[in-house]
Design a protein around this nucleic acid. Structure first.
Length: 485
RNA sequence: GCUUCCUUAGCUCAGCCGGUUAGAGCAUCUGACUGUUAAUCAGAGGGUCCUAGGUUCAAGUCCUAGAGGGAGCGCCA
């Protein structure tokens, strides 16, 4: 039967065929050829699962010219009977009755081969890497994590708030911002002082891409009690690491009538809920990624290998409480640690008040406690203006969650709800008060204790998939010098 | 932004102390085989050795600069 006579909607997804319940039925499948072996066996993938469907063609009856077009990544439609497989590698297979090539794929030019490619190479052809097992597993898990996050908050009665992507506030204080303007780069209108006159710009003022939805989420939290945002955020920092992106997705819950302990409980609960969701719903993908990692580890020297396979690492994270301690306690541990005494730290710990470097965080998480760590009550000098000042007048009710291999995955705090304290903190840190009156109104009209945090979505995806470069867990990564596609 | 390593066929890599016509596996193409599992077997084609200078009788190999990439650091999520 020619394709035109089959409604596209009549196709059956490969995932449901692989479950075996449709054995004996005649079905139509559509997908992309992964391999074509022995002039008989097509491994077909349609993205519905990691597994391929084996399609058996009768090369003695089929047109030889058509079979030559069954190249890697050609799109085809096949109709036939689903039967139990005679071969050993799969439980079911489709005995092909009609075969149609929907889209050819020139084998001489197509860059992907049925073999291992380096992640660096695939990053250069990010538009095609969806078609590999590794990236299909990663992005399927990314989807499930996003769904789990919404589900978690919805079940708890949180409302999903859409904070703006273009922001008129330039005092969010979380990093360099990308400017948004329709003014021409050359010959932009100037004011009396010779500065660019943003009154002539599209919005009548200077605007930027948001670096955080937190301040807007606080406005909503002081009406809805419990809200969260989940959207893209942008940082124009020149960060060249495997953990930073210029465009990334962030989850920012904000809760009224909550303190720092509630905040830590919420964050730990969210992380465990979403990881558990993936463990339960993405078994195939986790198995694949775990094996991939094991293969990769074989190439490495002993001391660089990770201590646990992927799934064990996730289960360990689910089954153990995160280690909670104050910054001050952490400094004591670090001061008395072997690497500090032996001068192994590049930045030795000498006095209270120093910001912790990556090497210190890694020591605490990977060597000392060997599990996720929540650090609280940092010196006020190294934290943001909106964090609640403790009675010691020295530390703030901040918390960072540190994960093995990732570092900081969550940063949050109980917010400063006292207007006068907040105003004096803002003055100390040179935050322009006059531009932040809308924010300060929350502290004027029915202020209350509240807390919230930001969770870096890609860092969560990194942890759950075991990938090591953040550019491999977002479809089209943006970072300094690169905005392809 | 800083430190460090890398760049040789479509991909992954070898190429010794600077010395003849730069190699392998996979992929591709041609043929054989026909229940394969990254199929197998035989054969063929495929190179701006990242770019530009320099040293040298001689440079893929040494030096300088630039471009691209990785890892680490800082900023953070």
């Amino acid at each position: 039967m020619p394709l035109q006579k089959i409604a596209m909607a009549k196709r059956t997804k490969i995932k449901s065929l692989l479950s075996g319940s449709l054995i004996g039925e005649t079905v139509t499948v559509m997908g992309w050829v992964r391999t074509f072996r022995n002039n008989q066996f097509i491994a077909l993938n349609d993205g519905s699962s990691l597994g391929n469907l084996q399609i058996v063609v009768d090369f003695e009856k089929e047109d030889a010219q058509k079979l030559k077009r069954l190249t890697t990544s050609a799109a085809i439609s096949a109709t036939g009977k689903l039967v139990a497989s005679q071969g050993k590698g799969q439980s079911v297979e489709l005995i092909c009755e009609t075969l149609e090539i929907l889209g050819d794929s020139d084998a001489e030019k197509y860059p992907l081969q049925p073999k291992k490619h380096s992640l660096e190479f695939l990053r250069e052809i990010a538009h095609l890497r969806f078609r590999t097992n590794t990236f299909s597993a990663v992005f399927r898990i990314r989807h499930h994590l996003a769904i789990a996050i919404h589900q978690f908050f919805h079940e708890k009665g949180f409302y999903y708030i859409h904070s703006p992507i273009i922001t008129g506030s330039d005092a969010e204080g979380a990093g360099e911002m990308f400017k948004v303007t329709t003014l021409p780069l050359e010959g932009a209108p100037k004011d009396d002082q010779g500065n660019i006159n943003f009154k002539k710009d599209f919005f009548g003022k200077a605007t930027n891409l948001t670096v955080s939805g937190q301040l807007e989420a606080e406005l909503a939290a002081l009406a809805f009690s419990e809200v969260y945002t989940f959207g893209p955020t942008f940082r124009a920092e020149n960060s060249n690491t495997s953990r930073h992106l210029a465009e990334f997705w962030m989850i920012e819950p904000e809760v009224a009538f909550a303190d720092l302990v509630d905040n830590m409980d919420l964050a730990e609960g969210l992380l465990k809920y979403t990881i558990k969701h993936v463990v339960e719903n993405c078994t195939e993908e986790l198995d694949f990624l775990e094996n991939r990692l094991l293969e990769e580890e074989k190439q490495k020297p002993q001391h660089e290998r990770s201590e646990m396979p992927l799934k064990e690492k996730l289960m360990f994270c689910l089954e153990n409480d995160f280690q909670r301690l104050t910054y001050t306690e952490a400094i004591d541990i670090l001061k008395n640690s072997t690497p500090n005494k032996k001068g192994k730290f590049q930045y030795p710990i000498e006095a209270w008040g120093a910001d912790l470097q990556s090497e210190h965080e890694r020591y605490l998480v990977e060597k000392h406690f060997k599990k996720p760590v929540i650090l609280t009550d940092y010196p006020k000098q190294i934290k943001a203006f909106y964090m609640r000042l403790n009675d010691d007048n020295n530390t703030v009710r901040a918390m960072d969650i540190l994960f093995p291999g990732i570092g900081e995955i969550v940063g949050g705090s109980q917010r400063e709800e006292r207007l006068s304290v907040l105003e004096s903190r803002m003055e100390e840190m040179y935050i322009p008060l006059e531009e932040m009156q809308w924010f300060l109104d929350t502290r004027r009209f029915g202020t209350c204790p509240h807390a919230g945090f930001g969770l870096g979505f890609e860092r969560l995806v990194l942890f759950v998939t075991g990938m090591t470069n953040i550019r491999d867990v977002i479809p089209f990564p943006r970072f300094p010098g690169s905005a392809e596609f």
